[in-house]
Simulated scan of single mutants.
Amino acid sequence: MQSRVENENRLKTWIVAHIARRIDEQNLSQTNAAALMGLKQPDLSALLNGKFNGFSAERLARCLSAIGGNVRLTVDESAGKQDIFVLEGH
């Protein structure tokens, strides 16, 4: 079983991969993408290079949303029910 830290790092890695893909798909420069996300370009560069200490998964999800990604959080409840929250991209 993976530790909480390992799971959090996997989630952060997954979100950052989607950020990188969205930047690429939109042909954004790091400077423009960082501005949209409310970051400085060196911080975005560090994120894209796997250095996301100091960034929560929630903050990364907001960054993805800021460049057009829809982020969905789904909680599977008993009896097959789901509760879904969507953070829609801009």
Rank of each mutant, 00 (worst) to 15 (best):
R21W: 02
G54A: 04
A17W: 04
L36A: 08
W14D: 12
V75R: 06
S29R: 01
V86H: 06
I84C: 07
K40V: 11
R4S: 14
N9Y: 11
A57K: 05
H90Q: 11
C63D: 10
G38V: 03
L36V: 03
A34M: 04
R59T: 10
A66R: 13
H90W: 04
H18G: 00
D76M: 13
I84N: 08
L44E: 02
Q30S: 07
K51D: 10
L87R: 14
I67D: 02
V86L: 12
A66M: 06
D43Y: 10
Q41N: 08
M37V: 04
R62A: 09
S29G: 15
T13P: 03
D43M: 05
R62D: 15
Q2N: 11
I84P: 05
L73G: 00
A66D: 10
N70T: 11
D76E: 14
N27I: 07
F85D: 07
E8R: 12
R22C: 06
V86M: 08
R10T: 04
Q30G: 15
E25Y: 06
C63G: 03
L64P: 02
G80N: 09
G54F: 03
N9M: 14
I67Q: 06
T74S: 13
Q30L: 08
N27F: 02
L60S: 01
R10F: 07
L60K: 00
D43F: 09
N32K: 14
R72T: 01
I67W: 09
I15N: 09
E58T: 00
Q82V: 09
S65Y: 04
G50M: 12
G50A: 09
L28V: 02
L36D: 04
S65D: 03
G68I: 01
A34G: 11
A46W: 06
D43W: 08
L87Q: 15
G89C: 10
L44Y: 00
G38I: 01
G80V: 14
Q41M: 04
G50T: 07
L48Q: 07
N49A: 13
L64W: 11
F55K: 02
R22D: 02
P42I: 10
R62E: 14
K51L: 05
I23M: 08
A46I: 06
L73Q: 03
F55A: 01
D24R: 09
R21N: 07
A20L: 03
A33G: 03
A66V: 00
A20T: 00
D24S: 14
A79R: 15
Q26P: 05
S3Y: 02
H18W: 06
L60A: 01
Q2G: 01
S56R: 00
A57H: 11
R72F: 00
A33V: 11
H18Q: 10
E58R: 09
E88F: 07
E25R: 12
A17K: 10
